[in-house]
Structure formats: C-alpha cells, structure tokens
C-alpha cells in the first residue's frame, strides 16, 4: 500500500540524511522504526507526510505518487501541536472543516468518546494533561480517516504509566480502523509492544540496517520471556547498526546496548 522506493534525502548543506530507503507497508500493518540519533527517522516521516521532498526516489500510496501532504496520510508529532485558541472539539475537527456541520460534529463526538475524553469538548488545550493532549492529537489525525498514520516519537515526552495507557488507546483505535501505522521511536519496549515489524536504522547516512518481525499475539505481555527475547534481538541489532564497520561486538547483549542512543 505505502511504498518507498530507493528514497534518499540530502539536505541543501550537503548533509545526507537518508540513503536508498526501500520500505513497504501493508494495509493495517504496524511498523516501528528504531535507530540511533541522526539516522533520519524523523526526516523519513516528514517525507511520507509530504512536508519535505525526497532528493531521489519515489514514495507511493496505492500506486499514486506522494509529493505533498495528502488526505490519506495523517501525522502525529512528538508534541501534540494543538492549536491553543481552539477548544478540544474544534481542534479535533480542524482537518474536517470542509464537511457539513452535522457530519463534522458526529465525527468529533465519536472521536472524543473513543479516546475517552467525552465531556471535554469545550476545554482549552491548556487545561489538558500531556497524555490527554496527545490523545486529542491522535483523534485530530484520525477523524480525517487516513489510510496511513505516521507517529513521530509520539509518547516520548510522557511518563511510563501514561505511555502504556496510550499504547492501549492507540491499539484499540487501530483495531477498529485498521489504519496502517508507521511509528518512529527510540523506546525498544514501545516498538515491541506495538509493531508487527521493527525496522532498525543505521545512522550517518540513515539507512535500513535490518528488519525484525514480531510475531507475538496481542495484547502483548511486557513481562513474558518471548517479549524479552524480541527486545533483546532489537537491542542486538541496534548495537550492530552502530558498530558496523568498527569492531563488531560478539553476539549477546553487550554493555553498550543500554546506551545505543
């Protein structure tokens, strides 16, 4: 469905952010991208969102080339980026202003119900907690009914407990909508909790190092051995992605694994 074909991005200053990225996302698939800083994860999402253009290569959605923001691609940023002068309801309905009023209101109230914020319509963004604000941002991206939802480290600013609850919210929304999710994260546990497939990136320039399938049934138990096994493989891959070309560490979790970022 979403297809990136040998996508590269070199910034005007000559800095090569991404080299030769090939990636496909199936309908309803959840793919997580992890990697050290400077590996171009955010650049990649901005390319898919149409906020930036690849230097070479093609990005296609259902066979049509993407080169500007599309109604079929939603994005959630690291910060909620709610518009402070709009109420919660108006923020959620921001992207569907062109729809008839009744339809708009129905979609907004359904979205509020689904993110567990019914009754918050008239609140200002400043009155929301970080987790609530990010839920509103998710609702705002989903009411336009995109085919692909991009998430750029969306939960990194939240505490562990809020983050876990937002993972559940996101998965619940995903189960009904079956939208494809492409999520960038530096939290290995988050990647293993959410993704069907984890793409490990390698920095300078950003390239795909390896892919790891996650075949665990949902809901996933973070304390299970199988979960830890996958996490360990991802950490190993991250280690490898950083040290390739230098001294390659022996297999197993090395001491640097915890400090890969």
């Amino acid at each position: 469905m979403l297809k990136l074909d040998s996508v590269s991005r070199t910034f005007p200053g000559g800095q090569e952010a991404l080299r030769n990225i090939a990636l496909e996302l199936a309908q309803g698939e959840i793919v997580a991208m992890v990697g050290g800083s400077g590996c171009g994860k955010t650049t990649l999402l901005r390319l898919v969102a149409g906020l930036d253009a690849p230097s070479t290569g093609l990005i296609e959605l259902d066979g049509a080339e993407l080169h500007e923001p599309s109604a079929d691609v939603g994005i959630i940023f690291q910060e909620p980026r709610l518009l402070p002068w709009l109420s919660v309801a108006d923020n959620i309905g921001f992207g569907i202003a062109h729809l008839p009023r009744a339809e708009r209101e129905a979609r907004v109230s359904r979205a509020l119900l689904r993110i567990g914020l019914a009754g918050f319509e008239k609140r200002w963004p400043r009155e929301l907690s970080g987790g609530q604000a990010q839920r509103v941002a998710i609702a705002r991206a989903l009411v336009t009914q995109p085919k692909v939802l991009l998430l750029d480290e969306p939960f990194s600013a939240l505490d562990a407990f809020t983050r876990a609850s937002l993972h559940e919210h996101l998965l619940a929304l995903w189960e009904t909508d079956r939208v494809s999710l492409l999520i960038v994260t530096h939290d290995v546990d988050e990647a293993v909790t959410l993704a069907d497939r984890i793409v490990v990136m390698q920095p300078k320039p950003g390239r795909i190092f390896t892919e790891i399938r996650v075949d665990l049934p949902r809901p996933r138990d973070r304390r299970s051995d199988a979960f830890h096994e996958v996490s360990r493989r991802v950490l190993d891959a991250l280690d490898g992605s950083l040290s390739e070309g230098q001294s390659k560490p022996a297999s197993g979790v090395s001491e640097t694994a915890a400090f890969w970022w």
Binding site: A49, L51, P69, R81
Partner: peptide
C-alpha cells in the same frame, strides 16, 4: 513553525 506545519498537514 510547528503550528504552521499543522496547517500544511491539513492542506
């Protein structure tokens, strides 16, 4: 700039 980008995302 981040707020302007929200406008771009929603075309």
């Amino acid at each position: 700039r981040k707020v302007i980008e929200v406008g771009r995302v929603f075309r």
